[in-house]
């Protein structure tokens, strides 16, 4: 019974995970009185959570320093100036134009290099085509010789055909002899 009581005293009422979740909930609360008693109790008994909480609070105070608690008296005048100077234009609409103007040298260089590449490519293509045509015309001259050679070969074939014909005719005659 006595041991059980000791355990209850040592163990904090809230575990670290629950405490961390509550810290997140009360991150924006600046005064210690806003923090629930259970969290305060845990923080006083857990140094790790206390350090985490202190860091969060310090950081959040710096971050929240830019928040306003009272209206800025000059806000409406600035808004009026803005409304008068740019009635149909918002800050977001002007950016792309500015960006295009800003990047125009890069885009112009890229476009110029593409056009130059196309021009060089077309020139090279035309020259290559002309070369092919020239080589074709030269071979046509040579081709006449080849044709002649082919014709003579055909002539030989013709002669051989004649020889074969005469051979068969002779054989036919000899066959006739055999038949007789």
């Amino acid at each position: 019974m006595n041991q059980l009581r000791v355990k209850q005293e040592i163990k904090p009422a809230m575990n670290c995970r629950e405490a961390e979740l509550l810290m997140v909930d009360f991150i924006a609360k600046q005064t210690p009185s806003d923090i629930p008693a259970a969290l305060s109790e845990h923080l006083s008994s857990c140094s790790l959570c206390m350090r985490l909480y202190s860091n969060c609070i310090i950081d959040f105070k710096v971050l929240a320093a830019g928040r306003r608690i009272a209206p800025d008296p000059g806000f409406f005048d600035k808004l009026s100036v803005r409304l008068q100077s740019r009635p149909g234009l918002s800050i977001h609409k002007r950016k792309p134009v500015r960006r295009i103007l800003h990047y125009s040298p890069v885009f112009l260089t890229a476009a110029a290099s593409v056009i130059l590449g196309i021009w060089i490519g077309s020139k090279w293509f035309i020259l290559t085509q002309a070369g092919i045509e020239t080589s074709n015309s030269l071979s046509s001259e040579e081709r006449s010789g080849m044709v002649e050679a082919f014709a003579s070969e055909m002539q030989l074939t013709d002669e051989s055909t004649l020889a074969l014909e005469s051979y068969f005719i002779e054989n036919e005659n000899s066959d006739n002899y055999d038949a007789q």
Partner: peptide
């Protein structure tokens, strides 16, 4: 303006930008 500015500031975490966007909200 305070509420609008603070909402913008919470998201942007920058005073100048929050003021700029808050004005755009009213426009």
């Amino acid at each position: 303006q305070v509420n609008v500015y603070n909402v913008c500031y919470s998201f942007l975490q920058n005073e100048h930008n929050a003021e700029d966007v808050a004005q755009e909200v009213f426009i």
